[in-house]
Write a protein that binds this DNA or RNA. Structure first.
Length: 1101
RNA sequence: GCCCAGAUGGCGGAAUUGGUAGACGCGUCAGACUCAAAAUCUGGUUUUCGCAAGAAAGUGCAGGUUCGAUUCCUGUUCUGGGCACCA
């Protein structure tokens, strides 16, 4: 009766499937337990031995919990939408649905091979309309929600509308502080609200929705034809494929995850994730606590812009200058201003008529200015907010002097985003409505947003965010991001050419370059100065690429004595450095300490910096020049992808205003398509499905789809009730299963999937669908299994291969060789010749086997040598030929061996190399285990005799250790314990049923097939999967004495068996009379005898 | 540069609260069985010295605390992971 694992495993897998032993019910008396694996993406490559590591550990834990009496939910499904399938479709013309289906089947077959206990009746796929109906439905909940900062909770949009109707947005400012209403304001009253038209109302609400549409800087990848999320971009290139990525402004769906930053951060405290995983999330959220401080700006030639239409001030000047034709001298500037005044008097009838109309447009919130200087030129009318210029032909444009400037000016205006409308006098006088309509149309077109940081008109200031307000007196300069709007407004005439040049340089710099050359110091002085709000000192304002427009306010205060980067900047550009920390600053290097006593700091003098932070912040708030502020590095999550193979947005645009689709019309299914190339205009392939996109003249659909994170953000809820078609899951099921108790997966999902899932669950919780707001109670990251690559060394330009030990004598190229034709390091040269046609005629330079040195040893036949390969630990990858397929391992050793071996390799969380050699040991263990029950020839050897104390002790020792180890996911040591236990029972020649039966149950989670087989062989009814875990009888583990190590001065010298209840005195007597101890004492009296009960004895001399 | 984790025999690793370092497995050496091989079984296997008994050193490196440190503290090197002009 041999251990025929192939037959046994096949048989039980079949029976288990037939009997549906893994079906899980939602109504059980037993306590629930939810064990989940991270959603796999079914790639075309199939599984390698690294993938099942997590699945095996979760399976062991699930089966263990089941034996322990829990109702265990352990489901599996597929994250089946996504880029690779679509890329494959583009390359091979196979529909993503088809290739995905094929990949899933391969995956499923491979998983089944390993004997997992998944409840396949609950399987789900994100690309199934029955599933993504609910992904879309949840998206609509996000669309219909806003985050109430006061309560720190999500609420329904209609609750926000009620607030607006009552009090405007006074208590709930726009989440995006830079957002302004068309009027330029960011506050509105209840009355304003009631006067807003539908478009404006929707636009305002959009500013609050959790899922919202906005122009955002996105990571655009031309090669993939899509937008990528921040976490899909690595060092400026795409995560998949490594294509360049650039910033681009596009109208995109985003999730307002930034509003939840604080809750996501706080939530980390109550969940059991590894410290490193929490750290990654904390870094990603990037909270920094500090103050926002306002610095007034003094331009070198002040131009106090007065309210109204242009300026009456004689010293006013153009706020923007053009180096090409105007800016270099002030004289010309003055000339233009004079000319504008002159021109004003000559205004024509047409101009006046249009002006009357335009100035009345104030109610529409676009303010027109008349004869307002732009770039040193005075257009007839300009709307600065919308960057729209209106010119009326006739008059001085005819003059030849003017004409030659037209070209340069138009160029400048275009570069700066201005558009120009030209009307003739006749048009205005004869058909004013048509003219106004044209203007309205132009105004409704959007311009690149983000109006500059401007205070009340006539005043310019810069807000900076700092975590160190205590260093306010050490500020020696300001640095503004090159993209900052204010740059245009503050640049002096003298500096204009230099600034232009620098801006051009910045634009030419790709993300990749900027990231590669971090240490390079660049920058340019604007000519303007900022005023320190406390000391009144004027400090220069610079621009530099090291300041990021997207972070904080896009401007910083430079404190060179305390910040390394600021210090380098100051040194590089020769800016004088103020020392506020005395001897802590050595003049050579900045010192970011918080432990210095402040000097040169006015009211902060004598304070410890650490304490001064709060003092300074208070003072700043009192003086009304700033406020305490918390900043987050995290950005809102881009949620649109220009892709076909994803969930369509359940949104309909009615005349460009987005509205939620009716719930009853869900799912919005993908239209059938044959080709998936992007449209080329930045729109996704769906734009080509015109019938689907355009519902009617006024209504159209979104042509983007959601990212793969969408389906994965809530799938764990669907497993609880996977076939429900009236709700995403029934409330009773949600309440019964609750949080995922253990979530096992790779660390690569740290910031994307895990944050989005946590966000979705928080919103669903706030809206009342869930009674928990963290999805995963405990997270375990399994380590990677790395590949162990093998190399052969080809002598350059030959087909000769030299063994690793001799390769240094030649000029060689190392080539990866398939690990499957190498035994250890020894290459199978014949297999190598057959491996690839190129190598058919390969010749080998062999060496003596360095391992077996004896002449009789393995490679010892006279004249023979072997080919030794080089090796390296690398990631497991097809291109390295180091991939090991689990199917082959299972075929050779069986699933039970494979499962136990993967666990035996090392701690679950550590990454470790795959080495097939060790699997023999685990396989031998299972054979040895089998032999306790059955003998090859004699058949069953199991006996019904009473067990001895020694046998019970061996058993319970093992059970105790295995249980402890399994509980703490230390599966490698649990396998060791089984081995030790089986070795001991073998030594005891124990074949007793009452002992072995218990051991068998405890082995079931690890090796279910052999356990079930033996369970039946020794005459049990029912499945061992439903047995209960054996209880440990401690009485057999109680010891009466212990073999103590006896040390002299800390060095163990001998061992003594002493009764456990021995007293200190008894021990001292016993130990000191020992011969070995006496010898080591050399007659000297012991100073002290340390006796730790159950541990050790130490004699100090 | 910053943050986190880690470093133990020839290899994967164990030592759960500071208490016999190297469990278990691989590899390897020797032996048994065999005509022989495979499989299986038994024993040795951290290093150095020694026939042995035994002795000395030893958990990346340098210190410290302690009767006693792989474990705690300080510094440092290297490896892996994360973040990266983040103010």
């Amino acid at each position: 009766m041999d251990y025929n694992f192939r037959e046994i495993e096949k048989k039980w897998q079949q029976q288990w499937r037939q009997n549906k032993v893994y079906a899980v019910r939602n109504d059980s008396e037993r306590p629930k337990y939810y064990v989940l694996d991270m959603f796999p993406y079914p790639s075309g490559a199939g599984l390698h031995v690294g993938h099942p590591l997590g699945y095996i550990s979760s399976d062991i834990y699930s089966r263990y919990k089941r034996l322990k009496g829990f109702n265990v939910l352990h489901p599996m499904g597929f994250d089946a939408f996504g880029l690779p399938a679509e890329q494959y479709a583009i390359d091979h013309g196979i529909h993503p649905a088809v290739s995905t289906e094929a990949n899933i089947n391969t995956f499923r077959r491979q998983l089944d091979n390993i004997g997992f206990s998944f409840d396949w009746d609950r399987e789900l796929r994100t690309c199934d309309p029955k599933y993504y109906k609910w992904t879309q439905w949840i998206f609509l909940q996000l669309f219909d929600s806003w985050f109430n900062r006061e309560t720190q909770q999500s609420g329904r949009i209609d609750s926000l509308v009620k607030i607006f109707e009552k009090e405007g947005n006074n208590a709930h400012a726009f989440p995006n502080t830079k957002y302004q209403l068309p009027s330029g304001q960011n506050k509105f009253s209840s009355q304003d609200w009631s006067l807003f038209d539908e478009r404006t109302k929707q636009e305002v609400l959009m500013q609050y929705r959790v899922a919202y549409l906005a122009y955002t800087d996105v990571n655009w990848c031309e090669a993939l034809g899509t937008v990528l999320a921040n976490d899909e971009v690595i060092n400026g290139v795409s995560y998949r494929g490594g294509f360049p990525v650039v910033k681009k402004k596009m109208r995109q769906w985003s999730l307002r995850i930034t509003e939840y930053a604080e809750r996501l951060l706080k939530g980390l405290e109550e969940i059991d994730f590894s410290e490193s995983m929490k750290e990654i999330q904390r870094n990603w959220i990037g909270r920094s606590f500090g103050a926002e401080i306002r610095f007034d700006v003094r331009t070198p030639h002040p131009w106090p812009l007065s309210k109204g239409e242009g300026s009456e001030n004689s010293d006013s000047r153009s706020k923007l200058t053009d180096p090409g034709y105007f800016a270099s001298t002030l004289e010309q500037g003055k000339g233009t201003i004079d000319f504008s005044k002159e021109n004003r008097k000559k205004s024509t009838e047409a101009e006046d008529k249009l002006w009357q109309e335009l100035r009345n447009r104030k109610s529409e919130d676009f303010k027109f200015r008349r004869q307002y200087p732009i770039a040193g030129y005075i257009p007839d009318f300009v709307c600065v907010e919308k960057k729209l210029i209106i010119e009326i032909d006739g008059g001085y444009h005819e003059e030849s002097e003017q004409k030659k400037f037209d070209h340069d000016r138009t160029k400048w205006l275009n570069e700066h985003g201005y558009r120009m409308l030209r009307f003739s006098n006749d048009e205005i006088l004869n058909d004013l409505p048509a003219v106004l309509q044209k203007i309205s149309k132009s105004l409704s077109q959007s311009v690149s947003p983000s109006p500059s940081e401007k205070g009340p008109v006539g005043e310019l200031f810069l807000n900076v965010f700092t975590t160190r307000p205590d260093t306010i007196f050490g500020v020696d300069f300001m640095v503004v991001a090159p993209e900052h709007e204010i740059v245009k407004e503050i640049t002096s005439a003298e500096q204009q050419p230099a600034i232009e040049e620098y801006l051009q340089y910045v634009q030419s710099r790709s993300e990749v370059e900027r990231m590669a050359e971090v240490k390079k110091i660049t920058g340019c002085f604007t000519g303007a100065h900022a005023v320190n709000p406390f000391s009144g000192r004027e400090i220069p304002i610079w621009i530099s690429e090291y300041v990021l427009a997207g972070y904080g306010t896009g401007a910083i205060m430079g404190v060179p004595c305390g910040d390394e980067r600021d210090h380098k900047f100051a040194k590089h550009f020769g800016i004088p450095i103020t020392n506020i920390i005395g001897e802590h600053y050595n003049g050579e290097e900045a010192n970011p300490t918080k432990d210095a006593i402040l000097q040169n700091s006015d009211f902060l003098n004598g304070l410890l910096m650490r304490d001064a932070i709060e003092v300074a912040t208070k003072k700043i708030e009192e003086a009304g020049i700033g406020k305490q502020q918390i900043n987050y590095k995290m950005r809102d999550a881009g949620w649109s992808r220009q892709r076909y193979w994803g969930e369509p947005f359940p949104i309909v645009y009615q005349d460009d205003i987005p509205y939620a689709m009716d719930e009853k019309d869900l799912p919005l299914e993908l239209p059938p398509m044959e080709a998936f190339k992007s449209s080329g205009t930045g729109e996704g392939p769906l734009a080509n499905a015109k019938d689907w996109v355009y519902i009617n003249e006024h209504e159209r659909r979104d042509t983007n789809t959601m990212p793969t994170h969408a389906g994965a953000a809530w799938y764990f809820l669907r497993f609880m009730d996977p076939h429900n078609d009236t709700a995403f899951a029934d409330k009773t099921a949600l309440d019964y299963w609750g949080q995922v108790d253990v979530y096992i997966g790779g660390a690569e999902h740290a910031v994307a999937h895990l944050l989005y899932a946590r966000l979705w669950i928080k919103v669903l919780h706030d809206l009342g669908y869930l009674n928990f707001d963290e999805p995963f109670k405990k997270l375990i990251n399994q380590g990677k299994i790395t590949g162990d690559s093998r190399f052969v060394y080809r002598i350059r330009k030959t087909n000769q291969f030299v063994s690793a030990g001799l390769k240094d004598q030649y000029e060689v190229d190392a080539l990866h060789v398939d690990v499957n034709i190498v035994d250890g390091l020894k290459l199978d040269t014949e297999a190598f010749r057959k491996w690839k046609p190129d190598f058919a005629d390969a010749e080998f330079i062999l060496e003596k086997d360095p391992v077996s040195t004896s002449p009789a040893g393995g490679g010892g036949r006279a004249g023979d040598g072997i080919y030794i390969c080089g090796s390296a630990i690398e990631k497991m990858s097809k291109s390295y030929f180091n991939v090991v397929n689990p199917d082959e391992v299972v075929e050779k050793y069986g699933a039970d061996t494979f499962r136990m071996y993967e666990m035996f390799l090392g701690p679950l969380e550590a990454s470790k190399p795959w080495d097939i050699k060790g699997i023999e040991g685990v396989h031998r263990f299972l054979r040895k285990f089998w032999r306790l029950f059955a003998h090859e020839e004699k058949g069953l050897v199991i006996k019904n005799e009473k067990a001895t104390d020694a046998e019970w002790k061996a058993l319970y020792k093992t059970l105790k250790k295995v249980e402890e180890d399994t509980e703490r996911f230390s599966f490698n040591t649990a396998v060791s314990s089984f081995m030790i236990g089986v070795n001991e029972l073998t030594d005891l020649k124990c074949h007793k049923k009452e002992v072995l039966e218990k051991l068998l149950v405890s082995l079931t989670p690890y090796a279910p097939h052999i356990s079930e087989e033996l369970w039946k062989l020794i005459g049990n009814q029912g499945s061992i999967l439903d047995a209960s875990y054996p209880l440990i009888e401690e009485k057999y583990l109680v010891e009466s004495s212990k073999n103590y190590p006896v040390a002299v001065n800390g060095k163990t010298r001998t061992e003594l068996t002493i009764a456990l209840e021995a007293t200190q005195q008894q021990v001292e007597e016993l130990v000191l009379s020992n011969d070995v101890v006496k010898r080591w004492l050399e007659g000297k009296p012991p100073k002290k005898v340390i006796y730790v009960k159950g541990r050790m004895v130490n004699i100090v001399v």
